[in-house]
C-alpha cells in the first residue's frame, strides 16, 4: 500500500480526487488525482505553490463544489452536498457586509437555528481573544483586512464544530499578529482537538501547527510528500528554536527545490 494513501478509519478521506474547471478558454486541470487521509483529532496542513489547487481542495472537501472524479469521505459518508458539521474560513474574507462583526459571528444562530443566548457568550469571548473587543458593532468595511480575517476565524470557531477547514486564515495578517494567532489557534485546538484541514503558504507555520504536513506539487496539485511532524506540544518558542523544527522546515524547502518550485 502506498504510504500516502488513506486508511478507512480516517475521519476525512480524499480518494482519487480530481477537479477540472470548465472555462471558456478550455478546461483547467486544477487538482489531483490526489489521495490522503486525516485522522480524527489530527491537525493536517496542506502546503503548496500558488495556484496548485489548495482552495479547490477545500471547496470540494466541504461539498461546496463537485469533484470531477474521486470522492471525499467524512466520517464514513461520501460528501454529496454542503458539509455543515464544520467551521470554515475562506481565503477571501467572506464576512457579510450588511452585518456587523458580532452579527457575522452570530450568523449560525440565524442559519443553524442555534439560540442566540447559547452562542453569544462564546462569541464575545472569542472576539475578545482575537483583539476585536470594541468592534462588535462595526461593519466589515470599517475594519482592516486582518481584523476581518480574525472575525471570520471567530465565526468558524464559535459553534464548537468537530471539523475545521481553514484556507490561509492568516494570509492578511502582519507577522506579529500571525504569530499570536498561531499560538492562540494551537491553544484552542489543544482544548478541543478538532479535526483540522489547514491550508497555508507558510512552511514554518505549517510545521509549527501540524501533526502532518501534506506537501503538494504544482497544478494540478497532487501529493508530493506527507511529512509527520514529531514535535512536542504546545509548540513553544523553545520547540520552534529546536534543530528538529529547523530540520523539518529544511526538508520541506528541499522538496520544493528538488521539484523546481523553489529556484536558487
Amino acid at each position: 500500500m502506498d504510504a500516502t494513501a488513506a486508511v478507512p478509519s480516517d475521519a476525512i478521506v480524499f480518494d482519487g480526487l480530481r477537479k477540472t474547471y470548465e472555462a471558456l478558454e478550455g478546461s483547467i486541470e486544477a487538482l489531483g488525482p490526489l489521495s490522503f487521509g486525516i485522522k480524527k483529532g489530527e491537525f493536517v496542513s496542506v502546503l503548496g505553490p500558488s495556484g496548485c489547487g489548495k482552495s479547490t481542495l477545500m471547496l470540494v472537501a466541504a461539498g461546496l463544489d463537485d469533484a470531477t472524479a474521486g470522492a471525499v469521505i467524512i466520517d464514513g459518508r461520501p460528501i454529496k452536498q454542503a458539509f455543515t458539521d464544520l467551521g470554515i474560513v475562506f481565503q477571501d474574507h467572506a464576512l457579510l457586509e450588511w452585518r456587523t462583526i458580532l452579527q457575522n459571528v452570530m450568523l449560525h444562530s440565524d442559519l443553524r437555528k442555534i439560540p442566540a443566548k447559547e452562542l453569544l457568550p462564546r462569541a464575545m469571548d472569542l472576539l475578545k481573544k482575537v483583539g476585536l473587543e470594541g468592534f462588535e458593532n462595526r461593519y466589515p468595511f470599517e475594519l482592516s483586512g486582518g481584523m476581518r480575517q480574525r472575525a471570520a476565524i471567530c465565526r468558524a470557531l464559535v459553534h464548537a464544530p468537530p471539523f475545521l477547514f481553514f484556507d490561509e486564515p492568516f494570509g492578511a495578517l502582519d507577522a506579529l499578529t500571525r504569530e499570536q494567532m498561531r499560538v492562540d489557534l494551537e491553544k484552542l485546538w489543544l482544548d478541543r482537538r478538532q479535526t483540522v484541514l489547514f491550508i497555508t503558504h507558510g512552511i514554518a507555520e505549517a510545521v509549527a501547527l501540524s501533526d502532518r504536513v501534506v506537501v503538494m506539487t504544482s497544478r494540478p496539485g497532487r501529493v508530493e510528500r506527507i511529512i509527520d511532524i514529531d514535535l512536542p506540544r504546545p509548540r513553544s518558542s523553545a520547540v520552534l528554536a529546536s534543530p528538529e523544527f529547523v530540520g523539518y522546515c529544511a526538508t520541506i524547502k528541499d522538496i520544493f527545490s528538488a521539484t523546481g518550485i523553489l529556484k536558487d
Binding site: 471547496l59 466541504a62 461546496l64 454542503a82 458539509f83 455543515t84 464544520l86 470554515i88 475562506f90 477571501d92 474574507h93 467572506a94 457579510l96 450568523l107 449560525h108 440565524d110 442559519l111 443553524r112
Partner: peptide
C-alpha cells in the same frame, strides 16, 4: 463566498434568500 458561508451553515432556500 457569502453563498458558500450560508451553505456551510446548512441554510435552506428561504434563509438563503432572506438572510
Amino acid at each position: 463566498e457569502p453563498i458558500r458561508v450560508a451553505r456551510s451553515m446548512g441554510a435552506g432556500a428561504f434563509d438563503m434568500f432572506l438572510r
